[in-house]
């Protein structure tokens, strides 16, 4: 009943082991496994619908509604709470944990091995690190101790937020961003329908920073969850770095 645990479970679970995933797992914007999710019944994280399914086990994220989790426990349904991943190391740990929870240790170990192998390929051959800024709606950014920050670091980009003393996520004032002069600004893709929160991404300062520089936007489904799909995000960022290095030569 959590977008990220849903995806981990779909990867690790054996045939017939998984019964229902949250409706978010079928939302193309946030989920990287929409096709797979269509095979399962969708739930909305509400205690009564989940109770009526009478599952043997519920896997929830630690950010899932507390009230729902507590009620399910009171009703006698075992609930495993999985913490979100804040680093690439966490991704491996969550895969292993999911394997243990579902009794699929071998599949999980295989996924971890594949993940490590691909990760190692990215870690080599980085000479210069262009400076990048992550900039989301409302002026949020992510520091080094976040999954997004680690994606950047692995792809060989230096994070502006870390230079400015952000380790977790926070609001980076527009003027601080402008003074930092990043080599590229990476923004989240806009959602349908307008909002003031996203308007800031069109501010003249951001446009000036983007002018004559390569830019990129992130595909939320690859960035938000600590699953092996972060490799795709890293891949996008490596492509961006190459483009910037080529442009400079």
């Amino acid at each position: 009943m959590n977008l990220c645990t849903d995806q981990l479970a779909m990867m690790v679970a054996g045939e017939g082991q998984l019964m229902s995933v949250s409706y978010l797992a079928s939302a193309p914007r946030s989920s990287a496994m929409v096709k797979q999710a269509a095979r399962f019944q969708a739930n909305h994280g509400l205690a009564e619908e989940i109770y009526l399914m009478q599952p043997d086990l519920v896997i929830a994220g630690s950010f899932s509604t507390r009230a729902t989790v507590d009620m399910l426990k009171r009703l006698g349904i075992p609930v495993v709470v999985v913490d979100p991943a804040y680093s690439l190391e966490d991704v491996r740990a969550r895969l292993t944990q999911m394997g243990e929870v579902l009794g699929q240790q071998d599949r999980a170990a295989q996924l971890v091995t594949d993940f490590d192998a691909q990760l190692a390929a990215y870690r080599s051959d980085i000479e210069t690190r262009p400076r990048a800024a992550l900039y989301y709606a409302n002026g949020y950014t992510s520091g080094d101790k976040t999954l997004a920050g680690q994606i950047l670091a692995t792809a060989g980009l230096a994070n502006i937020a870390a230079e400015q003393g952000f380790s977790a996520s926070g609001i980076i004032p527009l003027e601080v961003l402008a003074m930092a002069q990043p080599d590229t600004v990476i923004t989240s893709r806009p959602y349908p329908a307008a909002s003031r929160a996203e308007e800031v991404k069109g501010h003249p300062v951001i446009e000036a920073l983007r002018r004559s520089r390569p830019e990129a936007s992130m595909t939320d489904s690859d960035w938000v969850c600590g699953t092996p799909f972060v490799l795709r995000a890293i891949d996008d960022m490596v492509a961006l770095r190459r483009e910037m290095q080529d442009a400079r030569q």
């Binding site: 959602y191 329908a193 909002s195």
Partner: peptide, 13 residues
């Protein structure tokens, strides 16, 4: 009611 997830936060603004 907006489909944009940030819209609800803007009530404060």
């Amino acid at each position: 009611l907006s489909p944009n997830p940030f819209a609800a936060n803007e009530i404060v603004f």
